Computed example of a mutant assay.
Amino acid sequence: MDINKEIKKLESVHLEKPERVFSMYLNTDPADPDQQGGEWKIQLKNGLNSFENYLKKDNDREEKRNFKKVKEKVERFVHENELKLKKSIVIFATPDDSIWFAEIFQIPVESNFYWEETAKVDQLKEIYHKFPKTGIILTQKEAIKTMDTELGILKDTQLYELDLETEDWRQHTGPHRAQVTMGAGGKSTKQDQFESRFEANRYRWYKSLASKLDKLSKDNQWQKIYIVGDKEEAKDLCDNMNKEVTKIVEKNMLEHEEMKVIAEVMAS
């Protein structure tokens, strides 16, 4: 999904009564002190009911039916995704289903509900400006992982591993990285030899991969790039890339779950 295109599509919508556009920003951040008891459920219920109560008083039956269609669809989406919630839900919807944008974000929002002629995209544009298309590059010696993200949403990952025989970086296609078998002392002789060789050749090896990462950045239109890893490894990779790196996060997280990595980067 291209969020920028979605925003432009939403901005082009203008409906007349009894048609309306529903816009919802709902804060579901469990780390928010105001959300410790799942208060977002009450906010959702109250937000939806307020429009329904208003339309009852207005006595516009057709608009009331239209809102009810949207309300049911919104409630269904939230119910089906309740266990997947992160920090926020953003929804835009129309009764005829010509507009249906429903996303769970790793980014907190201010809870607001609208039922108007146009989609209220200001807050979505604001968070997109802060968290646009972003590349996260994780380094850990002979393995480098890239994560293509947008608005905190993971779109794609790629893993490169160094072939020590050919000294070429190869894209890894298997389910897991190969692990070196450790001996009784904790490290194998093979691992000791590798670490010594790696330190001697790290800069040159990272330089040979940098052009691929630059191309990946260009192809994915990354507006920000974060390198996550050991300080010296990250610096070597950063120095060899032509694309500007936004920040280096000095943590080894290559083996961590992707959403944990994204959360760490967004908080940095």
Score class of each variant (00 low, 15 high):
residue 17 K to N: 06
residue 166 T to E: 12
residue 157 T to P: 05
residue 156 D to I: 11
residue 175 P to N: 11
residue 258 E to I: 11
residue 24 M to T: 12
residue 217 S to L: 04
residue 68 K to I: 05
residue 253 M to L: 13
residue 188 S to G: 06
residue 191 Q to M: 10
residue 166 T to N: 07
residue 235 K to P: 05
residue 250 E to P: 03
residue 80 E to Y: 12
residue 177 R to S: 02
residue 162 L to A: 11
residue 156 D to N: 11
residue 262 I to K: 08
residue 236 D to I: 12
residue 259 M to A: 05
residue 155 K to H: 15
residue 97 D to T: 08
residue 21 V to H: 10
residue 72 E to M: 14
residue 151 L to G: 14
residue 157 T to Q: 08
residue 70 V to Y: 06
residue 252 N to D: 07
residue 162 L to I: 14
residue 267 A to G: 00
residue 144 I to N: 02
residue 19 E to T: 10
residue 126 E to N: 09
residue 178 A to P: 09
residue 44 L to A: 08
residue 71 K to V: 00
residue 255 E to M: 14
residue 222 W to S: 00
residue 134 T to P: 00
residue 227 I to V: 10
residue 81 N to E: 09
residue 211 S to N: 07
residue 233 E to S: 15
residue 9 K to S: 03
residue 199 E to M: 04
residue 241 M to I: 09
residue 212 K to S: 07
residue 233 E to F: 14
residue 154 L to H: 06
residue 9 K to G: 02
residue 133 K to D: 14
residue 252 N to C: 05
residue 169 W to N: 07
residue 97 D to E: 10
residue 267 A to P: 00
residue 18 P to S: 03
residue 23 S to A: 02
residue 169 W to K: 09
residue 137 I to M: 08
residue 259 M to R: 12
residue 208 S to R: 08
residue 29 D to V: 03
residue 25 Y to Q: 14
residue 205 W to I: 04
residue 262 I to D: 15
residue 3 I to Q: 03
residue 255 E to L: 15
residue 51 F to E: 02
residue 63 E to Q: 08
residue 216 L to Q: 11
residue 10 L to C: 08
residue 107 I to V: 11
residue 255 E to T: 15
residue 132 P to F: 03
residue 108 P to I: 13
residue 35 Q to V: 05
residue 68 K to C: 03
residue 103 E to T: 12
residue 196 S to R: 03
residue 25 Y to V: 09
residue 141 K to L: 13
residue 142 E to L: 06
residue 75 E to D: 12
residue 60 D to N: 06
residue 234 A to W: 04
residue 217 S to K: 05
residue 211 S to C: 07
residue 11 E to S: 12
residue 25 Y to E: 07
residue 56 K to P: 06
residue 193 Q to L: 14
residue 173 T to S: 08
residue 160 Y to S: 00
residue 73 K to L: 11
residue 175 P to L: 10
residue 79 H to E: 10
residue 237 L to I: 00
residue 44 L to T: 08
residue 200 A to Q: 07
residue 146 T to I: 15
residue 45 K to H: 14
residue 65 R to S: 06
residue 63 E to P: 04
residue 42 I to A: 14
residue 148 D to I: 02
residue 57 K to Q: 11
residue 95 P to T: 07
residue 33 P to E: 04
residue 93 A to L: 01
residue 29 D to S: 02
residue 213 L to Q: 01
residue 259 M to V: 08
residue 212 K to L: 04
residue 177 R to Y: 05
residue 24 M to G: 13
residue 126 E to F: 04
residue 66 N to L: 03
residue 235 K to V: 09
residue 251 K to H: 01
residue 233 E to V: 12
residue 194 F to Q: 01
residue 235 K to M: 13
residue 222 W to P: 00
residue 133 K to Q: 15
residue 8 K to I: 04
residue 124 L to K: 13
residue 92 F to D: 13
residue 46 N to P: 03
residue 168 D to G: 05
residue 19 E to I: 14
residue 48 L to T: 07
residue 183 G to P: 10
residue 247 K to E: 10
residue 220 N to S: 08
